[in-house]
């Protein structure tokens, strides 16, 4: 038996990879939902009122304004969910930030120019919101507390501190510049919608075009692989929760601009809306998948349902039912994709 290296001709391997039809549909599902909803409301509106639902600047503005605050929270939540975590504290961090923004703007407005006081309020809101985010990050990355539990604890802490700082529930703001920012518009586009659009683009860039975003996907898919590839998981997770805190801070600032008041309970219903937007937008709660653009569609789906049902005079309780049904359908599609779509999961 000689040992001439037997050169086995390797079988030519044409990795034949195509996205299955199911995968394609699943990736677009939020936009399909959105189109479906708009068509539905449009038909209802034309039959019932003889007017258009969507080709109506007032309706478009209202839907966009409805979507702004939940969307900003949801972009931060998208990052966290892709990494395989969840941030339950965002709603009350937002309330905390709204109260801090209101107090700061009132306080600074006594001595400084109104726009400068507002700017100071923005910084205060975002910085204060980063503190609970940082603590979340420490708990999860250093002390290995599961995200669900760590941020649930912070949910309570932020809620308590927000109510304590507010002294009751609502802190009214006396600042004409602030209310103009929250309610004014240019060429029929509200300022806060422009702010949200710029912010969403920034978050889209961060997720899809930077190392931070790429590492976020890798950690969500296979944390061990990411660690072996030399990614510093701890510092990534820490920065991640600071980021989601900062998003809640910006959302709180915009909320208080819109209503010229900081309310501790402002974000209470927004937490679940944000998770819903992310899930409807195509992210998996198991981590590893999701996009900012999907989340935009998810947030719009919720806003259209909420506004559209009011528009066609349906009892508001139907909102909860419809949003709930859409969430369940989204998760079912995600499961189907997992099973049949070739989306192989790590054992």
């Amino acid at each position: 038996m000689t040992n001439a290296p037997v050169h086995i001709a390797p079988p030519a391997d044409h990795g034949d990879v195509r996205l299955t039809t199911l995968q394609r549909i699943a990736n677009l599902r939020a936009w399909l939902f959105l189109a479906f909803l708009i068509i539905g409301f449009e038909a209802w509106s034309r039959i019932d009122f003889g007017g258009s639902f969507i080709i109506n600047p007032y309706n478009l503005q209202s839907i966009a304004i409805f979507a702004v605050v939940p969307l900003i929270i949801a972009t931060g939540q998208t990052f966290v969910i892709i990494s395989g975590g969840i941030d339950l504290s965002m709603g009350f961090i937002m309330g905390l930030a709204a109260v801090v923004a209101a107090h700061t703007i009132n306080w600074a407005g006594e001595t400084m120019s109104l726009p400068f006081a507002v700017l100071l309020g923005l910084f205060a809101a975002v910085l204060v919101a980063m503190i609970p985010g940082y603590v979340n990050g420490l708990l999860i990355s250093r002390l290995r507390v599961p995200p669900f539990i760590g941020t649930l604890g912070m949910f309570g802490v932020a809620r308590g501190v927000a109510f304590l700082l507010a002294g009751g529930t609502t802190v009214p703001v006396q600042n004409s510049f602030f209310s103009a920012l929250g309610n004014g518009k240019i060429w029929n586009v509200p300022y806060i919608v422009i702010i949200a659009a710029v912010f969403v683009l920034l978050m889209h860039y961060l997720l899809s075009q930077t190392k931070f975003g790429q590492h976020n996907y890798a950690i969500g898919a296979n944390e061990q692989a990411a660690r072996r590839a030399g990614i510093n998981i701890r510092s990534h997770i820490l920065r991640l929760y600071v980021l989601s805190g900062a998003c809640a801070g910006l959302a709180g600032f915009i909320y208080s601009a819109r209503f010229s008041a900081g309310a501790a309970q402002a974000g209470e219903p927004l937490l679940l809306d944000s998770v819903a937007a992310v899930v409807i937008g195509g992210a998996s709660l198991f981590g590893g998948s999701g996009t900012i653009l999907g989340t935009v569609a998810g947030a719009l789906v919720i806003a259209v349902i909420q506004y559209g049902l009011v528009f066609i005079n349906v009892k508001p309780f139907w909102q909860f039912i419809s949003v709930g049904v859409v969430i369940i359908i989204s998760v079912l599609i995600d499961q189907a994709q997992r099973q049949y779509g070739g989306g192989r999961q790590s054992e």
Partner: peptide, 11 residues
């Protein structure tokens, strides 16, 4: 090259 394949499946 690890037995359990150190790949991120989604990349």
């Amino acid at each position: 090259i690890y037995q359990d394949l150190a790949l991120a499946d989604n990349l």
